[in-house]
Simulated scan of single mutants.
Amino acid sequence: MSQWTDRRLLDLLGIDLPIIQGPLAGVTGAAMVIGVCRAGALGSLPCAMLGPEQIRLEVQAIRAATRNPLNLNFFCHQMPAVDVEREARWKETLKPYYQELGADFDAPTPVSNRAPFDETSCQLVEELRPEVVSFHFGLPDPALLDRVKATGARILSSASTVDEALWLEARGCDAIIAMGYEAGGHRAMFLSDDLNTQVGTMALVPQIVDAVQLPVIATGGIGDARGIVAALALGASAAQLGTAYLFTPEAKVSAAHHHALRHAKESQTALTNLFTGRPARGIVNRVMREIGPMSPLAPAFPRAGGALMPLRAKDEADFANLWSGQALRLGVELPSYELTLRLAEQTLAQLRRR
């Protein structure tokens, strides 16, 4: 497909379609990425919840199936100091659920962890040499970032405000992912923890496009070709879709998550910090309703989820994070390859009618 008029991102990343599969930590594996890459879009492997050997094996599987450009995605958070008192108060808040479900409250609390980009991650990038490396929550230490850039990888990172986009541009990003308030999963916010700074996709994308000189990728509430067309009309060079790929058979979603995605209404998602300690959008379930989706008691990211793990093991529907964006009702059940091609074909068809 050579009919795309804005080729800035296509040429920059070496892809054929202005579509990026959002990195869905804990859900995306090699099979989904392979389908997206084979279709000509950019497949993204989320690495924050994988160990080095797991990442290596996933990349080997992807490279064996396709040589098209690949994105490795990493988190850039700072690991917090352990706050024993806060974690004890948080677990005490959850004690009635332990008693109700028969979970062992006195057992050691599991550790919920997501690894930030570090020296080991950097060495892995230098070894595996992905064409694209994307980051969430800002950028890594400048010395590490310089080493990533030295591999030839293009650098992407997510911004949830214009100020964040300008910060990323000034520090060497090659393209900016403009993340609207509607997006599922963790907010990209890193210059502020004030949720009042967050802006919807339709308002955010054109303001970032006007503020930076880099190609912009729109994400958040984009669930089908109509959303991609809208993103392109707002000045974005491409769209990133996450929730849409949760409906593919390659997505490693639990039965409870699968059911929620297919039955929740568009109004039944909310930002919550209960599951990790950082705001992320998911489908509202019992624990979010009863405690409230945002709690000052939740330990700092990523440690909040540990105390919920024994409850999740008993009742996943009510005590697990069911990440989803607001466009979940647009999801269709197709393999990742077919979904990607369908999105591109329908987008081109709509653009021709304009």
Rank of each mutant, 00 (worst) to 15 (best):
G185S: 06
E126N: 10
L144I: 09
T109D: 11
P23L: 00
D194V: 11
F247C: 09
E126G: 09
G200L: 10
V27T: 08
W167D: 15
A300C: 14
Y181G: 02
H258L: 10
T109L: 05
G325S: 07
T5N: 10
L330A: 13
W90C: 05
T201D: 02
N273S: 13
P69D: 03
P18A: 11
S267L: 08
H136Q: 13
G220D: 02
A349R: 13
A233P: 09
I55P: 02
A103H: 06
I15M: 07
S192P: 08
G227Q: 09
I291W: 05
L50P: 10
A231C: 04
F301P: 02
M288F: 01
R286A: 03
R303D: 11
S336E: 04
Q213D: 15
T276V: 14
A313E: 15
N273W: 00
A260P: 15
T269S: 14
V125G: 03
R129C: 13
S324V: 01
F137W: 14
L168V: 12
A107M: 07
D118Y: 05
L12N: 04
P18S: 07
Q240F: 01
A211P: 00
L271F: 15
Q346S: 07
R353I: 06
R286D: 01
L166D: 05
F74H: 02
A238M: 03
L195A: 12
E182M: 08
M202Y: 14
G220A: 09
I34V: 13
F75N: 07
T151L: 06
H263P: 12
